[in-house]
C-alpha cells in the first residue's frame, strides 16, 4: 500500500511573542503514516497540536525537527526546491474551520475554479473539472450563486469541490464541521465519506465530535503535542477513561455501555449505533438474569 503521508519524530514550537518568553511547544516527537485511500480522524482538545500538525502536512509551516514525506518525497530535506513544495501541495489540500475565510471568489463556480486556475490548466479542462466537482458535492444548482449567501454546510462543500477539482489525493479537514449546525455537519460528513469511499480520496478529518470519528477507518488521539492513541475507532473508544482524561468525550452509546460494564455486566464498549447498543444491553441484561 502506498503511503501518502509519512511523518517521523516531527516537532514544532511557535516562536515566543516577546523576548525572554519560552517558545510555545505545539508538537513533540509525532510519528505516524497514512495510507492512500485511508480515512483517518484526528481527535484532540484545543491546543493539543492537531491544527499545527495539519499546517505542517500542508507545508504551511516547516517542522523544527523530524522528517515528513509527502507522496514518498522528503519535504524536510535541506535541498527541497520550491517546485517540490508546489508538487506536494497539489496532492494534499486543506479545508479550514471557518468557511468564510477560505472562499476567494464571489461566485461559487469561480471559487471552485481558483485552484485549477493556479495550476495553469487550459480553460475548457477547468470548466469540465469544476462542473464534475460541483456535481460530486451536490452543488451544481448553486454554480452561479454568490458564495456568501450560502449556508455554512454549503460553503464547506464548495471548498471541498475546490479541492476535488484540483484532483487532490488527500484532503485534510481542519475542524471543518466545528462552526456548522447539525444539518450542515451531516451534509459535510456525507460528502467526506462519499469522497473517501467512491473517489478514493485520502481523508484526514480533525474534529471535536466523537460520532464523526466513529465513521473513520482509524482514529489518532492527540494530547499536549503528542500522539496518545492510534487505532481503529473500536480500539480507541474502548478506553473511555483515557479519553476523558485528555479532555475529550466518548459517544453516548459507549458511555452507557461503560457504566454497565462498571456495574459488572459483560458488554463490549465499541458500539456506536443506538440500535446495536440496545441489542447489546438487552443481551447483557438477559445473560445476567440466567
Amino acid at each position: 500500500m502506498n503511503k501518502i503521508i509519512e511523518a517521523s519524530h516531527l516537532s514544532y514550537a511557535y516562536p515566543a511573542d516577546e523576548e525572554g518568553m519560552a517558545p510555545h511547544v505545539a508538537l513533540r516527537d509525532v510519528s505516524f503514516s497514512v495510507n492512500e485511500g485511508e480515512f483517518v480522524a484526528i481527535l484532540g482538545h484545543n491546543g493539543s497540536g492537531k491544527s499545527t500538525l495539519a499546517k505542517l502536512l500542508c507545508l504551511v509551516l516547516e517542522p523544527d525537527g523530524g522528517q515528513l514525506y509527502i507522496g514518498g518525497k522528503n519535504m524536510t530535506d535541506e535541498n527541497v526546491s520550491d517546485e517540490d513544495v508546489y508538487a506536494a501541495r497539489r496532492q494534499v489540500g486543506m479545508v479550514f474551520q471557518n468557511p468564510d475565510n477560505q472562499l476567494v471568489a464571489t461566485i461559487v463556480e469561480e471559487d471552485v475554479a481558483f485552484g485549477c486556475e493556479n495550476l495553469g490548466l487550459p480553460s475548457e479542462k477547468i470548466r469540465k473539472r469544476v462542473d464534475s466537482a460541483l456535481a460530486t458535492v451536490g452543488m451544481t444548482k448553486y454554480a452561479r450563486h454568490e458564495a456568501h449567501r450560502l449556508s455554512g454546510g454549503q460553503k464547506q462543500r464548495v471548498a471541498i469541490a475546490g479541492a476535488i477539482a484540483m484532483r487532490r489525493k488527500c484532503i485534510i479537514f481542519d475542524e471543518s464541521t466545528a462552526m456548522l449546525d447539525p444539518a450542515g455537519r451531516k451534509e459535510v460528513m456525507e460528502t467526506i465519506t462519499k469522497l473517501n469511499r467512491e473517489e478514493g480520496v485520502t481523508v484526514l478529518h480533525i474534529t471535536h465530535y466523537m460520532n464523526e470519528a466513529t465513521m473513520a477507518d482509524r482514529v489518532i488521539v492527540m494530547s499536549d503535542g503528542c500522539i496518545l492513541m492510534d487505532g481503529t475507532p473500536s480500539e480507541v473508544f474502548s478506553r473511555p477513561e483515557e479519553l476523558w482524561k485528555a479532555n475529550l468525550d466518548v459517544p453516548q452509546t459507549t458511555e452507557l455501555l461503560w457504566r454497565m460494564k462498571k456495574a459488572g455486566y459483560d458488554v463490549r464498549l465499541d458500539i456506536f449505533d443506538p440500535r446495536l447498543c440496545a441489542e447489546e444491553i438487552a443481551r447483557a441484561l438477559d445473560e445476567k438474569k440466567d
Binding site: 453516548q252 457504566r259 454497565m260 456495574a263 443506538p274 440500535r275 438487552a282
Partner: peptide, 27 residues
Amino acid sequence: EVTKVARALRDCGVDIGLDIYTVKFAA
C-alpha cells in the same frame, strides 16, 4: 443518542421508558 438507545431497547423488549435524555438517567 441515548434517547434513541432507550427507544431501541423497548423494541428489544426492555422498557426503561422513553423519557430518557441523559446517559446517567438511562443508567
